[in-house]
Design a protein around this nucleic acid. Structure first.
Length: 568
RNA sequence: GAUCUCUUAGCUCAGCUGGUAGAGCAAUACACUUUUAAUGUAUGGGUCCUGGGUUCGAGCCCCAGAGGGAUCACCA
């Protein structure tokens, strides 16, 4: 299909041809050796040095025989001064007059070599002696300008365009680049914390025959050679525990998980969770470990332990507050859930205005109360501990109370950030809990878990006491970069597919109809033609405009009236 | 999935009661040898998201659809 070009795109393609005519290859193959980045230049600036940098030409201010432009590399921008007689020493001034002034555009990659100096207005600059075209850009970038007060003008800020064309977003919006640099730093900081403890980073299957370890709707795919369904993982928990059975002291994985559920500003179909399992530990140890890790990560990417999130100051300084779920519910609703039956809990829910249905068991009811009435109160990092057994089928029973489990969730800014257990390692109890999940599933709870027989077999071989923790990496990054939407911390968030090339140069049905009738006669009275087509006023009008625009027909006015003819 | 809302030039946005489509930046041409949101003058650039309808006439009103955003439900 023919690509329809805008005026600016046509001009850039024309410049491309003219560059080649001047013997300049706009897409050269050779390595271009630089000896500085823009930040190195700024930080260790010395006048009179010979330097070479490369990047995109981002601004140009042309003043006759001299120009200023900014070159942007991966680190930042640096000003370059292009003087006609410095750039072109001899009689041939084409490199400045034609190549720089006419044939280069904002967005083109260039390499420059020159001498550093400071301008009259005190700006660090390079006086360019050599200019190399490295790659011509055929589409105009959005031009974002910053004024003296630091205000952005014409910011490229439409979320749809930014997410669909992240490459443009990254070029044009510096803060977006910073967000993703921070993202990588956070992950590196976590990784080094675990490695310092000698825990092993592992890879476990993404394609799983049973989607286990969490309660969620999976994506299903199919393996052709095996002719079996496979699921994209919703969690990696059961695989990591198998590795603890296998004898490792500590294993962790940054796990890309996939859940076939709704999408909004906190949910993407694929997201990253870091899960870690450590042998011979319990959930109390894991709380200490988690808060130390988070404080360290926060300090690695910020000045201190405090982050500003939408005006709220969140302090990751350890230790964090610890509250049992029972106490939390008592505090925020006045209800004491201790020893309450399912019926009593259901009644209590109705009393405080929480919707319930018959599929909900005890655990789910308590979870509803907490989610509805308590969760949003915890802005500062807080460990909520000791969850009901029924909603924690993989977690060890509490050492003091068999109705509860040794589990904590870390709440930050009113949302769950991490989830951890003293892992259940009693294979007989684990089997019973899975069976309970099956009963819940039969009652209509579509989040209940499947039974993983191989996992049970692994437990039967014996797993040491173990504590495990999972932390939502994307959500942590959101907190640490001040972004309220998950799309802002994912390079390529999931979106509905874009429709390309929906309009070609072909004629619409109505245009074709008009054109066919007209082609036979070559020329016709306008009103006669209109009548013959039988089109409504609007359809007629639209078709004629369309044909005229494509230069296929012409309307001429004579004394007798309007005549339409085919353009030969 | 529900509700509200948005979609106009490459980008950011105006557009009156329904009457020939606008600005700034970007682009093109000219001027200008230290500018910095460079400046001045001139010029070009549009499927007003798509498809129907109402109307003499629709960017604007009505219906249907697409895509985005926000809120909600579900979830992490």
């Amino acid at each position: 299909m023919m690509q329809i070009l805008t005026e600016q795109e046509r001009i850039r393609r024309q410049s491309l041809v003219e560059l080649r005519n001047l013997g300049i290859e706009p897409y050269p193959a050779a390595e271009f050796k630089t000896n500085r980045t823009t930040t190195e230049l700024k930080d260790k600036f010395k006048e009179g040095e010979e330097v070479t940098i490369a990047g995109r030409l981002m601004t140009r201010r042309i003043m006759g025989k001299a120009s200023f432009g900014e070159v942007m590399d991966s680190k930042g921008r640096f000003q370059c001064y292009f003087n006609r007689d410095v750039l072109c020493e001899g009689e041939d001034k084409d490199l400045y007059n034609k190549v720089f002034k006419k044939l280069l555009d904002i967005g083109d990659f260039i390499g420059v070599t020159g001498t550093t100096f400071i301008t009259q207005t005190g700006e660090q600059s390079i006086e360019v002696k050599e200019l190399t075209v490295l790659s011509k850009s055929l589409k105009p970038l959005p031009i974002v300008k910053t004024d003296e007060e630091g205000n952005l003008h014409d910011a490229f800020n439409d979320p749809e365009l930014r997410y669909r064309m992240r490459y443009v977003d990254l070029v044009v919006n510096e803060d977006v680049r910073d967000t993703f640099i921070t993202r990588t730093k956070v992950i590196q900081s976590m990784r080094s914390f675990f490695n310092d403890h000698n825990y092993l980073e592992v890879d476990t299957p993404v394609l799983q025959p049973i989607p286990g370890g969490a309660a969620a709707r999976p994506f299903i795919t199919h393996h052709n050679a095996l002719d079996i369904p496979l699921y994209l993982r919703i969690a990696n928990e059961l695989y990591l525990k198998r590795l603890i059975v296998g004898g490792f002291d500590g294993v962790y994985e940054f796990s890309r998980n996939f859940r076939n559920e709704g999408m909004d500003r906190t949910h993407n179909p694929e997201f990253t969770v870091m899960e870690i399992y450590v042998a011979y530990k319990d959930y109390n140890w894991m709380m200490d470990f988690t808060e130390r890790m988070l404080e360290k990560v926060c300090r690695d990417v910020h000045e201190g332990s405090v982050v500003d999130f939408g005006g709220k100051q969140i302090d990751f300084k350890a230790p964090f507050q610890r509250v049992t779920m029972t106490d939390s519910i008592k505090e925020h609703t006045g209800i004491d859930i201790t020893g309450k039956s399912e019926e009593e809990l259901r009644a209590a829910c109705k009393e405080i205005g929480i919707e319930v249905d018959e599929s909900m068991g005890k655990g789910k009811l308590i979870d509803e109360i907490f989610g509805e009435k308590c969760e949003h109160h915890y802005i500062q990092p807080t460990f909520i501990t000791d969850y009901p057994t029924e909603m924690s089928p993989l977690c060890k029973r509490h050492r003091d109370n068999p109705d509860l489990t040794e589990r904590f969730e870390l709440m930050v800014n009113g949302n769950e950030l991490a989830n951890a257990y003293s892992e259940l390692n009693d294979p007989i109890d684990q089997r019973e809990r899975f069976e309970e999940q099956v009963r819940l599933m039969e009652r209509g709870d579509d989040e209940a878990m499947f039974i993983d027989q191989d996992f049970l077999r692994a437990l039967e071989y014996g797993m040491p006491p173990t504590s495990g923790m999972g932390i939502g990496v994307d959500r942590l990054i959101m907190l640490l970069t001040g972004n309220e939407s998950i799309q802002e911390v994912l390079l390529f968030p999931q979106m509905k597919p874009e429709v390309f090339g929906k309009q070609g140069p072909e004629l619409t049905e109505n245009e074709q109809l008009v054109f066919d009738i007209l082609s036979k006669a070559k020329s016709m009275d306008l009103n006669a033609l209109k009548e013959k087509t039988g089109l409504s006023n609007k359809q007629w009008d639209k078709s004629m405009k369309g044909l005229g625009k494509q230069g296929l027909t012409k309307v001429t006015k004579t004394d007798e009236g309007l005549t339409v003819s085919v353009v030969e």
